[in-house]
Computed example of a mutant assay.
Amino acid sequence: MLCFYAPDTAAHDPRFWMLRGVPMANKETAERADCLLAGIAAAGLTATDPPVADRAPMHAVHTARYLHFLETAWDEWQTAPGAGAEVVANLHPQKADQTYPSGITGRAGWHMADTGCPLGQHTYAAALRGVDTALAASRAVLYGAGAAYALCRPPGHHADADTAAGHCFLNNSAIAAQALRAAHDRVAILDIDVHHGNGTQQIFFDRADVLTVSVHADPDAFYPFYLGHAHEVGPAGTNLNLPLPLGSDDAVWLDAIDRALDRIAGFAPGALVLALGLDAHENDPFRGLRVTTPGFARAAARIRAAGLPTVIVQEGGYLSEDLTHNLASFLRGWIGTA
């Protein structure tokens, strides 16, 4: 399997985060990539530095206003009196019937849904290289590879067309799907991160050409809270959410993946984007689900058996030794060496 990783994404190394009112160290550190690279190596694979891509699919997915914000926000933030080292919004407007502000404090609130996505000096450049990584894997699949893996940092599936959230700035999975649409009338996205891919759902919710399916912990009491429920099907019926009870184990998770694959087969897409989160693991600090390390290998084998050209885009997974083992397990399951 072809694997891609841009080393310069390590320049994005966020510091600020807040959980239940307590400021603490951000969990989406550059060190995560080292653990994931070790997982690639443990599976007997190597990662290639992707070239700078034609980012037209990114511009099709995200608004020009939002991309301009990401590009300029940090520099403008530094001109504000007493500004911190990272752009962290302290306002979170509901947006409906509200007016877009001109000042950086207001625009930060408009474009940043929570405090989990501090924007540093190098964040936008790193996010662009994450997009290049996803597009390199997409290009490989478009040119005949059965599957390709994109180790994207920062992750992307919580970012919608106009908003950063949950460590995510540019939606790599959505951008990969948009790229695949150049050759396929229909594309499916399967998200197996423990958190619902709310940004991806919002981007494609009104479209009939992209099916979005997410298997995740029930958002009633789990991030992202406000989206990810079973009744959210979309105008064309091209969105399927499979929320699982908190603490669900391998059997429940794999059964939901089977149901997701049945729906994808019925949609008959030409290609698949797999948003791969590894935070469904039983040792994840938030304990959303209780998937074991071998469970990731079994999931990989089932998804590969669907027989679709597949772009695998890395999403979540908190920093730990388990991250290495879980990615290695998944990749071995995919290539048949588990």
Rank of each mutant, 00 (worst) to 15 (best):
185 D>P: 06
214 S>V: 09
299 A>H: 03
273 V>W: 12
283 N>L: 13
252 V>Y: 02
249 D>R: 12
314 Q>C: 14
152 C>T: 15
36 L>R: 06
300 A>W: 03
183 A>F: 02
50 P>Q: 13
137 A>G: 05
322 D>I: 03
114 D>G: 05
31 E>F: 11
256 A>R: 03
89 A>V: 06
1 M>Y: 06
93 P>K: 05
170 L>D: 01
331 L>H: 02
127 A>P: 10
319 L>S: 04
32 R>D: 00
109 G>Q: 05
7 P>K: 04
104 I>Q: 04
154 P>A: 10
160 D>Y: 12
321 E>C: 04
328 A>D: 13
46 T>L: 15
282 E>T: 15
51 P>A: 12
137 A>N: 01
195 H>R: 06
200 T>D: 02
150 A>I: 13
9 T>Y: 06
199 G>K: 10
159 A>V: 12
109 G>N: 01
244 L>A: 09
294 P>K: 00
34 D>P: 02
88 V>P: 01
240 L>N: 08
336 G>R: 08
71 E>W: 08
315 E>K: 08
135 L>S: 07
307 G>H: 04
289 L>D: 11
262 D>C: 10
278 L>V: 10
135 L>P: 06
213 V>S: 06
218 D>A: 04
84 G>R: 08
217 A>P: 01
99 T>S: 13
275 A>R: 00
261 L>H: 00
93 P>F: 10
329 S>N: 03
56 A>F: 07
184 H>Q: 12
335 I>D: 14
273 V>L: 13
70 L>Q: 04
320 S>M: 14
61 V>K: 00
249 D>P: 00
39 G>S: 11
290 R>E: 14
238 T>D: 01
43 A>T: 10
184 H>P: 03
311 V>S: 01
304 R>T: 07
155 P>D: 09
230 A>P: 02
167 H>V: 13
74 W>I: 02
228 G>W: 00
83 A>W: 11
314 Q>F: 07
156 G>R: 10
275 A>L: 02
254 L>W: 08
89 A>F: 05
321 E>M: 14
251 A>Q: 07
142 L>M: 15
109 G>H: 04
238 T>G: 00
208 A>D: 15
1 M>E: 09
134 A>M: 09
96 A>I: 15
63 T>Q: 00
28 E>G: 09
293 T>M: 09
273 V>A: 14
180 L>M: 14
262 D>Y: 14
34 D>Q: 10
36 L>S: 06
288 G>K: 00
5 Y>A: 09
50 P>L: 12
45 L>S: 06
196 H>E: 14
45 L>T: 09
332 R>C: 12
34 D>H: 14
185 D>H: 05
200 T>N: 05
27 K>I: 15
213 V>A: 08
336 G>Q: 11
114 D>Y: 03
7 P>M: 11
337 T>K: 13
250 D>C: 08
67 L>Q: 04
104 I>H: 02
62 H>F: 08
12 H>S: 01
232 E>A: 04
231 H>N: 15
274 L>S: 10
303 I>H: 02
2 L>S: 15
219 P>T: 14
290 R>M: 15
191 D>E: 03
72 T>A: 03
251 A>Y: 11
46 T>R: 12
216 H>E: 08
159 A>G: 02
120 G>P: 10
72 T>K: 04
125 A>C: 07
238 T>V: 04
331 L>T: 06
8 D>R: 15
274 L>N: 05
317 G>N: 02
81 P>D: 13
6 A>G: 07
101 P>F: 15
240 L>M: 14
238 T>I: 02
